[in-house]
Amino acid sequence: MAKNKNKGDEMSFLDHLEELRWLLVRSFVAILIGGCVAFACSGFIFDNIIFAPKKSDFITYRFFCDLANKYDLDKSFCVTEIPFELISRDMEGQLNTDIWTSITAGFILVFPYILYQLWRFISPALYEKERKMAVWFILTTSVLFFLGILFGYFLIVPLSINFLANYRISDVVENNIDVESYLSLVKTTVIACGLVFEMPIIIYFLAKLGLVSAAFLRKYRRYALVIILIIAAIVTPPDVISQTIVTIPLVILYEASILIAARIDRIRAKELTTTS
C-alpha cells in the first residue's frame, strides 16, 4: 500500500481505487466539456484547421516552395494541387465524424487539467520536495505535448498528405478518400507526435524507477537515430533539407532524454554513497 510520505497515513487498496475512479470521472467530464466547446466551433475547426493541409496554399507547402526557390531545389516542393476529394459514404457519417473529432479536440484542450488530476493521484506517494514540482511537471509536460501537436500538424501531417495523395500505382485509380480515413491520419499523427514529445518526461520517470539509464540510451542511440531517419524519409519529400527539418527535433528530444537520465543516475549514485 502506498502512503502519504508527508503525513505518514497509509492508503488502502480501496482508497486507491476510489481516487482512481474520481480521476477518471473528472477527466471524462473535462473532456466532455472541452468536446462541447469544440463541437460549437466545429465549422471553424474543420474548415480552417483540419482541412487546411488539403489546400495547396497551406503554410507548410508555401514554406518548402520558398525554400526550393531560394536554394534552387527541386520544384516538386511547390505544391500546386492535392489530387484527391473527400467523401462520406455513410448516412450518419458526417455527424459521427463531428462528434468524435470534437471529443479528440476536447482531449487536447483539457490535457493540462488531466495532467493535474494525474499529479493529484500520484502526489500522496511523493515526498514534500517532490510535490513542490507539480507546477514544473504540469507546465513542462503540457508545453512538450502542445509542441508535439504543432510539430505533427505543421510538418508530419501536410508532408504525409502530399506524399500519399500523389502516390500512384496506376493512372486508372482515382483518389476519392473517405473523410474518416483522412481524419484518422490527421488525429493519429498529431496525438502520436504529442505523446512522442513527452519522451523526456517518460525517461525521467523511468530513470527514477531504475528501468533505464543514460548508458542504456547511449548504447542504443544509433538504432534510435536509424528509426528517426526512416520516419523522416517516409513522410518528407526526397530531399536532405526537408528530412533534416523533421529529424532535428526528434534527435534533440532523444539527446535531452539522455541528459535527464544521466542526471538521475548521478543523483542516485550520490544517494547511495551518502547512505553507505
Rank of each mutant, 00 (worst) to 15 (best):
D178W: 01
V240C: 09
F145W: 05
I228W: 02
S242W: 01
I234V: 14
D57Q: 08
L126M: 14
L209Y: 11
L217P: 01
F39K: 06
A233V: 06
T273D: 13
G194N: 03
Y254R: 05
V135Y: 14
I59P: 03
G93N: 07
R168I: 10
R222D: 03
K55A: 13
I149E: 06
R26L: 14
A262M: 12
L155P: 00
E92A: 11
V179P: 06
T80G: 10
R263H: 15
S257F: 04
L195M: 14
Y116W: 13
L17E: 09
L225Y: 08
F145G: 01
L259M: 11
A262W: 12
D265Q: 14
M133L: 15
P158M: 10
I82G: 01
L155G: 00
Q117L: 12
T188F: 08
S102Y: 07
T140C: 13
I230V: 15
Y127M: 11
R168K: 13
A269K: 15
N96A: 12
S12G: 15
E128T: 15
L147W: 05
L183W: 01
G210L: 11
I260Y: 06
A192G: 05
A215Q: 09
K208I: 05
L217M: 08
Y153S: 08
F154Q: 08
G148M: 03
W100D: 07
V135K: 14
I228C: 04
I138V: 12
F13P: 04
W22P: 02
N4H: 12
K219V: 00
I169M: 10
I156F: 04
S76A: 09
R266Q: 14
F77H: 02
W22C: 04
A232K: 00
L73V: 06
F121H: 08
G210D: 11
S160Y: 01
P53R: 05
L147V: 15
S242T: 12
I122H: 03
T104Y: 06
I82P: 04
T273Y: 15
N4W: 09
L115F: 10
L95E: 13
K75E: 11
L155M: 06
I50W: 00
G210N: 12
Y153A: 02
F151E: 00
V226R: 00
S276I: 15
P200Y: 03
L183G: 10
V25T: 08
L23S: 05
D47P: 02
C65F: 03
G106D: 00
T97F: 02
S142L: 09
T236D: 01
W136F: 15
V226H: 00
F154L: 11
E19T: 13
E19H: 13
